[in-house]
Design a protein around this nucleic acid. Structure first.
Lengths: 206, 206
DNA sequence: GTCTATATCGGGATAGAC
DNA sequence: GTCTATCCCGATATAGAC
């Protein structure tokens, strides 16, 4: 759905991209050297330039990938004819699942959008993300009387905050409140799927 | 309260620290060079090493400073005898005010705690932050019957999420939903102080 | 305390052999 | 396509003059 002409990519190019994703997302642009990516991919440094010309070009490819996993893809859910509360439940569940499977992406994106905010315009064209669909959809539900009068921008920011922050701040929260126990924090995050859902739904109930 | 023997610091050392705070917090450890800090401070590069021995030592000083502005200082509020809802209102208002006045600290901390999580133990000794006070306080209120039975860890993470994320993700949210209008987003953040407060209080009301 | 000069290393990038 | 060799630059850090 998101890909474009990936069938004819050489195996080397794919290995470079996979390695670049791993290292860039873990260490950021400035924290990553071309040598680290080459080592991770098991090939020589100069091949990175052969396939991607520059560090910046390679990074942009990774950023586009990560961005698509950071901005929730919820169009299908929103335009379905389910109830508002069911939609919210599905959005939160699916989004938190994706974030838990890509746990380094939130802090990566948060860092990079502050480091180079102007890149966003160009990237968002690549992704085809259209945020107004969310706002429109909630305006519709509101006129139907299914929801309290809530500013949809606050509502959306609330949902994103509650889903993303606990992943981005994991190293801190897990150490302070969970004795740095990985399994315990995974359970906490799973619990949160229903906690956050109830929290949000309650805030828009009439 | 937080300082330790700052009266006898030479003016140069203070200028270096101020410059280091500005540059490190804006660009992170790997994005910052010693030359940038020296230029910002208006002194020569080698003086940085004279006063702080290494880049890492200088960075640690900055990180401690930033960390104290990231973890809310709410002991006085919590141990006061105000009502729960008043406490929450004060916590959220004062904390969001501080974050708005230090808007680059959230993404800085979120990045650095993922880059080097093990530094946290050492830093937290410097700051003397004791998170258990929060949990204890809310357990007490709960037994008084003033609150719904809510896991205080989820409650705290909810509050932090709703306060911190809108600052950390500002470059993205402001562009997407506010046409990159600074004043409009400042208003949005001010609105959030009461929005978040109501949101939280409603979630714990019996 | 503050500067100049320099040591040493690793970074991104390119040319060219195979 | 893949490698070796190399260029050039900027990075942290230190030695030593003033």
């Amino acid at each position: 759905m998101v890909k474009k002409s990936e069938g004819d990519l050489s195996s080397t190019e794919n290995r470079i991209l996979d390695a670049a994703k791993k290292v860039f997302i873990a260490k950021g642009f400035n924290g990553t050297s071309m040598q680290q990516i080459a080592t991770e991919a098991g090939i020589h440094k100069s091949l990175l330039h052969y396939y991607f010309r520059s560090k910046d070009k390679l990074f942009t490819a990774v950023f586009v990938y990560a961005f698509q996993h950071f901005v929730p893809q919820i169009q299908e859910i929103l335009i379905s004819d389910a109830s508002v509360s069911l939609k919210i439940e599905r959005i939160i569940n699916e989004y938190m699942d994706m974030l838990m499977q890509n746990e380094f992406i939130p802090s990566f994106i948060l860092h990079e959008i502050n480091r180079d905010p102007d890149r966003l315009y160009e990237i968002m064209l690549h992704t085809g993300i259209n945020p107004s669909i969310f706002l429109d959809q909630f305006t519709i539900e509101r006129t139907k009387g299914n929801m309290r009068q809530v500013d949809p921008r606050h509502l959306l920011v609330n949902i994103l905050s509650l889903c993303i922050f606990p992943i981005a701040a994991r190293p801190l929260i897990q150490r302070v409140f969970f004795s740095n126990d990985n399994l315990a924090y995974n359970n906490f995050l799973r619990e949160r799927k229903s906690v956050v859902t109830k929290f949000i739904i309650q805030s828009i109930q009439v």
